[in-house]
Structures are given as structure tokens and as C-alpha cells.
Computed example of a mutant assay.
Amino acid sequence: MYINSCKIKVRYVETDKMGIVHHSNYYIWFEVGRTEFINATGISYSQIEMENLMLPVVESSCKYIEGAKYEDELTIETYISELTPARIVFSYNVIRNQDKKILAKGSTTHAFISNDFKVLNLKKKKPDLWEKFLSLYSG
């Protein structure tokens, strides 16, 4: 299984009055992790879209274990936790670098659809991309 790690530093704007990162920012970090994951495979999301393929989020979740704080240095780990010809699930760990503590765990489920919003069978319609994702997933 391939796990992509990207680093971020908590900005002041991401915190609330209590000095803790607002919960909505974790989903932004998940998108950063997912984008970095896809880029690390040698393709970009814009290239995927140019091939008449989109990956809308159809479900998301996050378990908050401990709040990140201003200037915490974090690592976002991203990996494929489920893969079918019609959908892909990315999972995420948000880790504080200082003590390696997992602060949050989450996932986003994406459908494979065409530009006209019809569900695609990625294995049949885009076999090269299917093989790329399959090689990164340990299932």
C-alpha cells in the first residue's frame, strides 16, 4: 500500500477563539493530502479532468482525537482504503510531528463520473488509470 505524506503548518486563520484548529479545516487538509497523493503518482487532478473524468466527494467523515494548535507542524498521511471500478475511498491521518500523535483520522469517498455526471466503470473506460490506482491499493 502506498502512503503519501505531506507536511503543513497550522496558520493562525485556521484556529478558533480557543486557539484550536476549527474542525472544518481538516477537510481542507484532506484535499491537500489527496491532491499530493494523486500528484505523486505522476498524474494531476487536472489531467484526470481533461480525460472526461471527475471524482466528486459523495461521503466524508472525520474523527477528531485531539485538537491541533497554531503553529503545530503536521503530517497528512493519505492512502487508498477502498477501490472499486465505480468509486475510490481515500483515508487520512493527521499527525502532529512533535510527538507523532494522531490528532484526527478521516476518509472521503469519491465516485468516478464523466463530465456529463454519469457514473463510469473506471476499469473499463480508463484501464490505464485503473491500473495506476490498483497498484497503489493493497486491498
Rank of each mutant, 00 (worst) to 15 (best):
I76Y: 02
Y79E: 12
I113R: 08
M18C: 13
I28C: 09
L134N: 05
I38H: 00
S138G: 13
S46F: 10
D16P: 02
T41V: 13
N25W: 05
D16V: 04
Y12I: 04
V119T: 14
I88W: 00
V58G: 09
I43M: 07
T108F: 03
Q98L: 15
K9W: 05
K126L: 12
S61N: 15
T15V: 08
I95W: 00
F90V: 03
E73H: 15
E131H: 13
M18T: 11
S107K: 07
Y26M: 01
V94T: 06
K63G: 05
V57S: 02
Y137E: 05
K105G: 04
Y27T: 01
I38V: 11
E71S: 10
G19S: 11
I95M: 02
I95A: 01
I38A: 00
E73T: 11
L83T: 05
Y92K: 01
S107L: 13
I8G: 01
S24F: 02
Y27K: 02
M50C: 13
F112L: 03
S46D: 12
C6M: 13
L103R: 03
G33V: 03
E51H: 12
Y45C: 08
W130M: 04
R96S: 07
E31F: 05
K69R: 14
D116Y: 10
N97D: 15
R87V: 03
L129R: 00
C6I: 14
K118E: 08
N115C: 13
T41P: 11
K7N: 15
K126I: 10
R87Q: 10
L129T: 01
E82L: 10
Y45P: 08
D116W: 13
T75I: 13
E31I: 05
Q98P: 15
N115V: 11
